[in-house]
Design a protein around this nucleic acid. Structure first.
Length: 244
DNA sequence: CTTGTCACCTGAGCGC
DNA sequence: TGCGCTCAGGTGACAA
């Protein structure tokens, strides 16, 4: 694997990236980070919110917003395209745990992520429960959309203090988060209207969003119009009647 | 330590 | 038609 930079996102990791020759041993994932494990260390990739990876022939012309490419011996190239540039590409030496990864909470779809754990971690926390479950130190992978959806399904008001949510309610919420994420993955994720890619298939989870993006529309449960507030600078939509 | 706020970045969508 | 404004998102940095 050779690496080519189309702009200044990454400094030369091995002096001249064109001369680097680095077999990829494994591809792993932690939270929303993708790890390309190589002999000399790992490439850490994050797609931000608008990034995508694609495999093309290495001679194919670069597209707008192609920021970095990994060129393989078989003539193919893996390219990171990211219009909004919230993604990143980092390097981690062998045996090292990058500071971005070292403080992450459990993976949501594993047995590590339990109601008991979340409950205990939330005691005395005054932060709204929505922001709490979006905190990567609590659990990874719960972004704004899935936080909104999960809280609605669990009937929990997004602004409720995390420390005042009972164990019983976390026992409802945690499985719902798992189900919501699992369903979204099955359907290829959520492609929002402004992220439809001409060269990539959209995700279909957006078709079954219950609250996100539905401000002012009737709650599917009680028909009351959904409310939108902002929590942590993020759009928060909920039903003031069904979520307490 | 906790909690709140801002920045990063671009393109879509809107009003004028 | 085209300009300028606002907004969206994940996450780190920093202020209070």
């Amino acid at each position: 694997m050779n690496i080519h930079l189309s702009d200044g996102l990454l400094q030369n990791m091995w002096g001249d990236p064109h001369s680097a020759n680095l077999p990829v041993l494994a591809v792993e994932r932690r939270a929303k980070y993708l790890l390309l494990e190589c002999v000399l260390g790992s490439v850490i990739l994050h797609l931000g919110m608008s990034g995508n990876l694609r495999v093309v022939d290495k001679d194919e012309p670069l597209k707008k917003h192609d920021h970095i490419e990994f060129i393989f011996a078989n003539g193919k190239a893996l390219r990171l395209n990211d219009p909004r540039r919230f993604g990143c590409c980092l390097w981690q030496a062998p045996g090292e745990c990058h500071s971005l990864l070292s403080k992450l909470g459990p993976e949501p779809l594993t047995d590590e992520f339990t109601a008991k754990r979340v409950y205990e971690q939330s005691r005395n926390k005054k932060v709204p429960v929505k922001q709490f479950i979006m905190d990567n130190a609590v659990v990874v992978g719960v972004g704004n959309i899935y936080a909104n959806e999960s809280l609605f399904k669990a009937g929990i008001h997004p602004k409720r203090e995390a420390g005042k949510v009972s164990l019983a309610r976390y026992q409802q919420l945690v499985p719902i988060i798992k189900e919501t994420l699992a369903a979204a993955i099955t359907q290829g994720g959520t492609t929002l209207k402004d992220f439809a890619q001409s060269d990539g298939k959209p995700g279909y989870f957006a078709q079954q969003l219950l609250v996100y993006g539905r401000k002012g529309e009737p709650c599917i449960g009680c028909k009351k119009l959904l409310t939108e507030i902002r929590l942590g600078q993020r759009s928060t939509v909920f039903c003031s009647q069904c979520q307490k």
